[in-house]
Design a protein around this nucleic acid. Structure first.
Lengths: 192, 192, 192, 192
DNA sequence: TATGAATGAGTATTCATTCAT
DNA sequence: GATGAATGAATACTCATTCAT
């Protein structure tokens, strides 16, 4: 429960959240943390490892956004709350979202990928579990639950990619409304 | 129509396509182009501008993938061909896709954003036009065409983001099949 | 007779023997010794002193290679056994040899040089003693024993310098044979 | 015939000659050369290459010391002049000698070793040629010329190793006289 | 148009060492 | 005796950019 380690991670996250990957340098992290650059190496072997831990923390944060949905009484409500929580994660932690879902620029750093895949699977499985119970409850068509997870996650991540790219130049409120209409279209189809 | 300018852009693109943004350096571009690093500055004021032009070219390439869909005889076929072409773009030009759709890492470079938004709008409008005529033809429900474009683009970009992140660990063939099933679910809905 | 002190020295030696002077760092020594880097400073004031002790130990080891030659019955045999033992030291402890005979790179560290010179003199005197008794016994010409020591040591160290530099690209077996032919030429001269 | 390149090499040599390998840093070389550290990389790809060129220059310098011996009229005189010139090289360029003959600390850097071996072979062959003609002329016993080269080079390099190690604590003049007596003993043997 | 030389700020990382505990 | 945390200086090297030619 080293405090400095957490501070470093927090600063690294903050720096990544504002400056992106390009701006993530040991020096700047250290400066933000109020320690020397070399002190970081007492806590992390190298930048790669530090970033890896950061991504792990990202997945952890995401999961913590999703889990409260389990408090809802029915499968349908749990599903909808999950989508709502996911939206909140996008809106409140946009760079964290990017870190864990987009991160194509930084894939090289993720050497120990199996390790992270497990983390990512947790959130993916959370979706699948929600969908499975929605099918059981008769709210969703009988279909392959994990593929529906893919559909929802794809729409979800794509939505964000478009949004942060500036290709969906709307206000937060508009985005929220559009998000729900989009979910609705997915649920009910667009074909006549 | 300076030849060297085009060569530089082509080399920058190649380098970006293989090494990602981190590997995009003036020096390496120059080396690939067989000129000196400083010679680049005859053609582009700085790296920012060069990258900007690169993104522009990315949009152009994407558009060129879409356009052949217009040869199809009916609105529905033109729509489906558009989705097929978009898939091909993903599979054949993954880094280009990333460059123009994901690129959150590089947003800083996009100073002249209005300029690029026009380019991006072209492809977005292409979708919208296809959807509009599908609605006219009665193939799709009467709905807001641009919002359906958003849905499709979101699913499309999200699909790719998941894929290149390694979060959809499937073969190209599997991805293609899954893509089509996903499109199908969007078209027909998943609610019972 | 602190145990940790000896362990540190042993680890420093091992590290030097494998990685050379460049690889001799307090951190790595500590890691090898299973203690913290700072713990070394309980036993040695600084790296300089530690290295100094290491060189001392090198001379000790060298002496231990030579001494068994005293078991031989005649001066000539003791002399020849000494040369044989010296060869073994080269072949079995190349880096140790380098440490104590070449070590020009590290002369700065040898602050307390008088101290080491005494150690080195012991082995030098061992040669001289062998030669003196060979002259007494009539095996060697009447000559200045210490200068003949210089000749033999020079040939000996030079032989090794050439060998480890890769300038004598031969196998161990070839080197051994060449060494003896070289000793022979020294003993008997090359002039017609 | 870039001037800066030569200046850099000269400064690197000077720095090596005074500070040894440990003190050979790009920064210090640059400082000595009056340029920025990075400017070095315009002329050498990296430290390894720079050092490699330095060693090459060392061999060249050594060869230039030896060659004038060819002006002597007889094989015996050419041989003796060669030994004299070699001594001068030791006395005048001690660190250069060390650089090219001892350099065990830096062998790792010599990746392109074949390249350097050719250079070193030139000087070795020079010895062998002198000895071969001495045998022809009847001055030296009929023997293997290259092995006698080894003997002489070994004695020569060993002599220096002992000298620079401080194990031969004599003045330059004494060293010179001792050197010649040593050569003499090699030529005529020490056995009674 | 193009080049070669140079720069200064930046990169990650290693090092010997100190200090409070 | 020993540790963990931290430091400041050093390391080799890369970068985008400028300038004189």
């Amino acid at each position: 429960m080293s405090n400095t380690k957490d501070i470093i991670l927090a600063c690294a996250r903050d720096q990544y959240l504002t400056d992106g990957y390009k701006g993530l340098s040991m020096r700047k992290i250290a400066e933000k943390a109020g320690i020397s650059a070399t002190a970081i190496y007492r806590h992390f072997n190298n930048k790669e490892e530090l970033f890896h831990r950061l991504v792990k923390k990202g997945f952890g944060t995401y999961t913590q956004y999703l889990i409260p949905a389990l408090d809802e009484p029915t499968a349908e409500l749990r599903f909808k709350k999950t989508m709502a929580n996911a939206l909140n994660f996008i809106l409140e932690q946009p760079k964290y979202f990017e870190l864990i879902f987009v991160k194509s620029e930084t894939k090289d750093e993720l050497v120990n990928f199996d390790d992270l895949r497990i983390d990512s699977k947790i959130s993916f499985d959370f979706y699948t579990a929600r969908i499975t119970e929605c099918i059981s409850e008769g709210y969703l068509k009988d279909d392959n639950p994990s593929e529906i997870s893919v559909l929802l996650l794809a729409a979800y991540t794509g939505f964000f990619a478009l949004y942060t790219s500036g290709l969906l130049p709307r206000s937060k409120a508009d985005i929220e409304a559009l998000y729900w209409r989009t979910i609705d279209r997915i649920l009910n189809g667009v074909v006549a």
